[in-house]
């Protein structure tokens, strides 16, 4: 196995009010891997995702991204390597126009003005949103918002994409487009989702989080066919995927 691009060792996180959100989390993710994080509400998925961008720091244990420890002094490097897609695109699109929003990260990392236009339009083109460039974000549909948010993240050229519930609020058509888009990406992907069919289509590996611990970790097809395991974690198997492997 290659050197892992993400590695967690006995990672624990306790909120200031004393709630233990993550307990002894350990895993390795290889370059180019795609991992679905599944688990019921409050299991700790979002807390774990916040660690990937250093918005939360481990209370104990370690997390490293591309060999760099996630800690105060390395946050800049970590955030350049990881692109985070938030659950609600309204939280992520804060600039006045689509163009400005995609340019936000680029300008922060010192992209020269003459390159800006090309790189923004390239990112918008990838997600099929080039025509939206002058629009204000609040005049976009949910699917368009999601696409633009992805463009904003892609423009920064991250190695790892971290997504929190990317299919929430999407109509079936937009969801399908998102799946197709994700399949074309070569990035390492970590996707937290309740949409099991989506997880199955986009990820080769699945981790089940239950009460702050990893209760199962393995190939997505195997995990999603283990009915007893899923039930214990308050989950249901994908609809397009029975125990026998046939719909």
């Amino acid at each position: 196995m290659n050197r892992p691009i993400i590695e967690a060792k006995e990672l624990c996180y306790t909120y200031p009010d004393g709630t233990a959100a993550l307990k002894d989390i350990s895993f390795r993710i290889a370059q180019g891997g795609s991992v679905a994080l599944v688990g019921e509400n409050g299991a700790g998925k979002s807390s774990l995702l916040q660690h990937f961008t250093g918005c939360l720091l481990p209370s104990a244990g370690t997390l490293s991204i591309k060999g760099t420890m996630v800690e105060g002094k390395n946050l800049k490097a970590v955030r350049r390597a990881v692109g985070m897609l938030f659950q609600n695109p309204d939280d992520q699109l804060f600039m006045p126009t689509v163009f400005d929003d995609v340019a936000f990260g680029l300008l922060n990392t010192g992209t020269p003005e003459n390159e800006l236009e090309t790189r923004v339009m390239e990112a918008l083109g990838t997600v099929g949103a080039a025509h939206l460039r002058a629009r204000p974000p609040y005049r976009l549909s949910q699917g368009e918002k999601r696409a633009v948010a992805i463009a904003g993240v892609l423009a920064m050229g991250p190695d790892i994409l971290v997504m929190d519930e990317p299919t929430s609020g999407l109509d079936p058509g937009s969801r399908r487009r998102l799946i197709r888009l994700l399949k074309t990406f070569g990035h390492t992907k970590v996707i937290a989702t309740h949409d099991m069919d989506f997880a199955l289509e986009t990820c080769e590996r699945a981790m089940v989080i239950h009460r702050g611990r990893i209760s199962a970790d393995g190939p997505a097809r195997v995990i999603f066919s283990d009915k007893a395991l899923l039930e214990r974690a308050s989950l249901e198997p994908p609809r397009g995927y029975g125990p026998t492997g046939c719909p």
Binding site: Q50, T53, C55, L75, K76, R79, R80, V82, G83, M84, F86, N88, D90, D91, Q92, F94, F99, D100, A103, F104, G105, L107, N108, T109, E113, L116, G152, V153, M156
Partner: peptide
């Protein structure tokens, strides 16, 4: 709560306290 999430989203894309706009 929303402001906190927006702040995190900004940090994730290299926010350093200054908002830059392309001319």
């Amino acid at each position: 709560d929303r402001a906190e999430r927006v702040y995190r989203a900004m940090l994730c894309r290299g926010f350093d306290g200054r908002i830059r706009l392309a001319g």
